[in-house]
Amino acid sequence: MNQQKSIKLVECPRDAMQGIHHFIDTDLKAEYINLLLQVGFDTIDFGSFVSPKAIPQLRDTAEVLSKLDLSQSKSKLLAIVANLRGVEEAVKHEEISYLGFPFSISETFQMRNTNSSIAASLDTVKQMLGFCDQHNKTAVVYLSMGFGNPYGDEWNEEIVEKWTDILVNNGVRILSLSDTIGVSSPERIKTILPGLTAKFPQVEIGVHLHSTPETRIEKIAAAYESGCFRFDSALKGFGGCPMAADDLTGNLATEDLIWFLESKGEKLNLDMEKWKAAVQLSSKIFL
């Protein structure tokens, strides 16, 4: 068993859908997410309040939210925001528990992803934390490029630790180390994660890994063996980051994650019948 802490699974239909070019019908999105809400995940990363020009697929997030049934679900909802306008929109919805912000330690990618510098993004995070306090939300900051930087900006473990320290000192309590285009390796995961979890025991540090199918299990194993208990994933490994403008490297596949964790004796308490129904419905979404 892992650290005697409960494993937290974050299912990410938002990340799975956002790069799909054909527009997925709002009712179909809601039907799919409603099934996922019944499986028993800790959190559902369901949508984002970002520019419709940037991510047209998620322009109907508020409408999807209005169609979700949380009455029989223990899962909490997370929405991604990229600027203060998105923060102000997201906090209006009391059904949302978490606001996620992509904070890249690569200046190049932060501009590409949020049209904002790292310095300006840090200011946005500070203001977001204030909004979260006022509206009973919790901030989740994704430390993008947490395992390497393919854009030529300087990257090393000290930079990762420096920005973690800055974010934590500003009040961030949930941090997800993100591998935006799949550059992480088991060795790098095992090098970075244990040091951060040891230095910041008060912070919930998770992983949002992108991977090819061949390397998923070894990355999951490396994170688990490093003491990680918060994992982002998506059914069948769908998705990736459309702002990376590379061949999409998919998410960790939830079914691989479930298999691995159960093989380690973790009790996940998932409704596998609802999961199978979601897998079946996914064929209508991910054509």
Rank of each mutant, 00 (worst) to 15 (best):
I96P: 06
A223H: 09
D179T: 09
L37G: 08
V172R: 01
I285V: 14
R230Y: 08
F109K: 10
I220F: 08
L193D: 00
N136Y: 05
K5I: 01
V183K: 03
E89T: 13
K67S: 02
S75M: 07
L193W: 01
L261Q: 01
A120M: 02
I44R: 00
E218H: 05
C241L: 09
F286L: 05
G227R: 12
K67W: 03
S97E: 12
K190D: 01
L122P: 01
G47F: 00
D153C: 07
Y98P: 04
F238Q: 01
E262W: 02
E161A: 11
G130C: 10
L99T: 06
E88Y: 12
M243I: 00
P102T: 04
I192H: 02
R112D: 13
T26H: 02
F131C: 02
K8E: 08
V168E: 03
K76L: 12
L36F: 08
G148W: 11
S116G: 02
T43S: 02
D271P: 14
D271E: 15
G40Y: 05
D232F: 13
S178I: 04
S184D: 04
L281T: 07
P52E: 09
N34I: 10
D15M: 05
T249C: 13
P242F: 01
I7R: 00
G148I: 05
S75L: 07
K76T: 11
